[in-house]
Design a protein around this nucleic acid. Structure first.
Lengths: 340, 340
DNA sequence: ATAGATATAGAAAACGTTTTCTATACTCAT
DNA sequence: ATGAGTATAGAAAACGTTTTCTATATCTAT
C-alpha cells in the first residue's frame, strides 16, 4: 500500500478559487459575510478537491477536540459495554468521538490513561467504575479542576466530583422486601471482592436484616474471590453446592450480579434443589443472561443505559456551561420479577 | 467547575530553564546531542511545571496521531466486544489510543464514521463486520489506497484489501463431521439474516450435505429474521418448538451463533425434548453463554481474540512498513465438544 | 463634495510543536 | 597561527487551521 494521495488543504482550495485562505475558512464555518458568488466559487473548489478541514489543526487553535475519553476496567463485561454503548451513542450524535481506554481495573491503569487523555487534549473524561483509592486520595477531585470529569458507579461523601450512581439502597431494599413478602426469613447475600458497589450493597443488606430483625449467620453472608465473569459463575456454583452440603437454613439469596445468580442457579439445579421452590435467587444488573436463563432470573434492573445517558448528558453540560456545581445524580432501580 | 489552570507549554519550559524551545524539544525527544548540564536544567523545569507535550501539535507536524479507529456495528454484542478488547489491548501497549465508532450495522453509518476518522487523521482504521455492499462497491478498496485499513470478518475474492477472516470452511466442517460421526443423518442449519458470515456458512453446509449425500429438506435449513441477541434467542426457541410440532425428522442442528443455539436448547427443553438425546445442538462463537448454559453448549470456537490480535498486528505492519501486498489472514477454528 | 457606515476580503498572528538551517565556541592537527 | 572538524544551541520555517486586525470599495446621509 502506498498511502500517498495527499490531502487537499485550505491553501489548495484558496488557490483554486482565487481567494485567500481567510475567505475559505469563512465559507466553511459560515461565521462571517462572504459574497454569494465568491462563496459559490469556493464551494465548487472544495467539492472538486474533496477538501475536508484537518481537525487536528482546528483543535489546536480552538482548544477543543470534540473528543471524550471513556475509562473502563475492561470492555467485554456486559455491564460495562452497555454503559459505553449509551455514552458513545449519545455523544456520537453530537459529533463527539470517544477514546476507549481499558484500565485493567487498577489504579495505575487509570492514572496512566488519564495522563494519556490529557496529553491528547480531550474535552472531557468519563470513568466507569473508578477505583475507590483514587477517589479517596483526591486524585479525581484534583482532576475535576482541570477538565470536565464524570464518575460512574463510585461515590464518596465529601469528594467534590460529578457522580452518576445507582440507587443501591432502593435496589437492594426492593429485592429484599420482595423476598420477605414471599415469607423468607433466612436470606443470604453473595458479593464479590472489595469494590464500591459491593460494599454499599452489603451495608444495605446488613441494615435491612437488622431492621427487620432477621438473623444473619455466618453462612448467610459470603464473598467470592475475584475473577472474570466465567470464573464468577463457577465459584458461585461451587459455593452454593458446598453451602447446602453443610445444610444451611437459607431459603433465598440476593446475588450482587447476574453471573453470581446464574452460578447459584446452576448449583441449585446440580444438587436437585428446585428454584424457586427450594431456593429463591435474585440477581442484579438485568443483563442479557438473566433473560435467557431457564428459568429466567428475577433481578434488579439498574438501567445501565440510563447511567450512560446521564453521564453523557452531564458531560456536555459541564463542557458547555462551565457550571460550578458538583452533582450527584442517582439513577433509580426496578425489581424485575421473573422465574427465580 | 472552572477548568482554568493553563497547561505549561514548551515555551514556559524554555523560559524557565533559559534555553530555546528547540533545545527543550531535543531533550524531550532525545534525538540530538544536548549538553548534560543543560539537559538536567531542562528536565528540572519540565518536572517543576508538570509539562507534558501537546500531542495535537506534535501530530500536526509529524503527520502521525498514534490513533486508530475501530468500526463496529454495536459494541455490547459479546462477539464484537471480545474482538475490540483484543485490538485495543494490543495497540494500547504500543501507545496507540483507539476511537470506538458504532456504525449501527448499516453502510451509511460506516461511511460517515470513516469520514469522521479521516478528518481526525487517524493512522489506520479497523472495521469489524464491514458491510458487504461497501466491499463490493469498491469503497474499501479505494480507502485502502488512502490509509492503512484492515477488515475483520468480511471477504470478497478479487477485492484488494487486508482481510482477517475465520476459517468458516473448517469450522462448519468440523461441526458437521462431528455430528455425522455421532450417527446423525438429518441435520438442520439455522442462520440469521443476510450477512457475509451466515452466507458462507450456509454455502459450506449445503456443500457438505451434498458431498455426504445427506438430504436437506425444507425444514432443515431456515433463517431467522434479524434482531438483537435477546430477540434471536426467542426466535430460535419459537422456531424449534414449531418445527417439532410439525414433526420434523431432524436429530441435530448447527446454529450460526451461540444465541441461536441457546434458544434452540431452551426450545427443546420446553417441549420435553432431551438434549443431546433427542436433539443435538452445536453453536458457534464460543461466547461466555455457551460455557454457562446447562448443559454447556458444544460450539465452534473461532478465537475472537486472535482475530483481534491478528488485525492489530497487521495494522502496525501496514503503518510501519508501507508494505505493498494485500493479505488475507485466516484464523483457525476448533470444535469445543461440551454437553449438547 | 465629504464623512461615516457598510460589505467584503486579505495579511498576519496565533495555536504548540518538530525540524532544518545557521551560528558560535571550542578542540586538534598542521 | 590557521583551518577543519566537533559539540552545542538558537532562529526560523513548517504543519493547517482560526481569528484579529487592517484595507478597500461602495453606499448613504448631510
Amino acid at each position: 500500500m502506498i498511502h500517498s494521495e495527499k490531502r487537499a488543504t485550505i491553501h489548495d482550495v484558496a488557490a483554486m478559487s482565487g481567494v485567500s485562505i481567510t475567505t475559505v475558512s469563512r465559507v466553511i464555518n459560515d461565521n462571517y459575510p462572504v459574497n454569494v458568488v465568491t462563496k459559490k466559487r469556493v464551494n465548487e473548489a472544495i467539492e472538486a478537491l474533496g477538501y475536508r478541514p484537518n481537525l487536528l489543526a482546528r483543535s489546536l487553535i480552538r482548544d477543543k477536540t470534540q473528543t471524550i475519553g471513556i475509562l473502563v476496567p475492561s470492555i467485554e463485561n456486559l455491564f460495562f459495554s452497555e454503559v459505553i454503548k449509551a455514552i458513545d451513542g449519545y455523544l456520537s450524535n453530537l459529533d463527539y468521538r470517544t477514546f476507549l481506554c481499558q484500565t485493567g481495573g487498577n489504579p495505575l491503569g487509570e492514572e496512566t490513561m488519564v495522563d494519556s487523555l490529557l496529553n491528547r487534549s480531550v474535552d472531557g473524561i468519563v470513568v466507569v467504575d473508578p477505583r475507590t483509592k483514587l477517589i479517596k486520595s483526591g486524585f479525581y477531585e484534583g482532576l475535576t479542576r482541570r477538565i470536565p470529569l464524570v464518575l460512574i458507579n463510585g461515590y464518596n461523601q465529601g469528594i467534590r466530583c460529578n457522580f452518576i450512581i445507582n440507587n443501591e439502597l432502593a435496589g437492594t431494599t426492593q429485592a429484599l422486601e420482595h423476598l420477605v413478602l414471599q415469607g423468607h426469613k433466612h436470606i443470604g447475600f453473595m458479593r464479590g471482592k472489595k469494590s464500591y458497589s459491593y460494599d454499599i450493597k452489603e451495608a444495605m443488606y446488613v441494615d435491612f436484616m437488622n431492621k427487620h430483625q432477621l438473623e444473619i449467620d455466618d453462612m448467610h453472608l459470603f464473598q467470592l474471590p475475584g475473577g472474570n465473569d466465567l470464573e464468577t459463575v463457577k465459584l458461585a456454583k461451587e459455593s452454593i453446592t458446598q453451602l447446602f452440603s453443610n445444610s444451611t437454613n437459607m431459603t433465598a439469596i440476593l446475588c450482587c450480579n447476574d453471573f453470581m445468580a446464574i452460578g447459584a442457579l446452576n448449583g441449585a439445579k446440580t444438587i436437585g434443589l428446585s428454584v424457586p421452590g427450594g431456593l429463591s435467587i435474585i440477581g442484579y444488573d438485568n443483563t442479557l443472561i438473566s433473560q435467557i436463563s431457564e428459568p429466567p432470573l428475577t433481578t434488579v434492573d439498574h438501567h445501565m443505559s440510563e447511567l450512560g445517558d446521564a453521564a453523557a448528558r452531564r458531560m456536555v453540560e459541564l463542557i458547555s456551561s462551565k457550571s460550578a456545581e458538583y452533582k450527584k445524580i442517582v439513577i433509580n432501580t426496578d425489581l424485575i420479577v421473573r422465574g427465580t
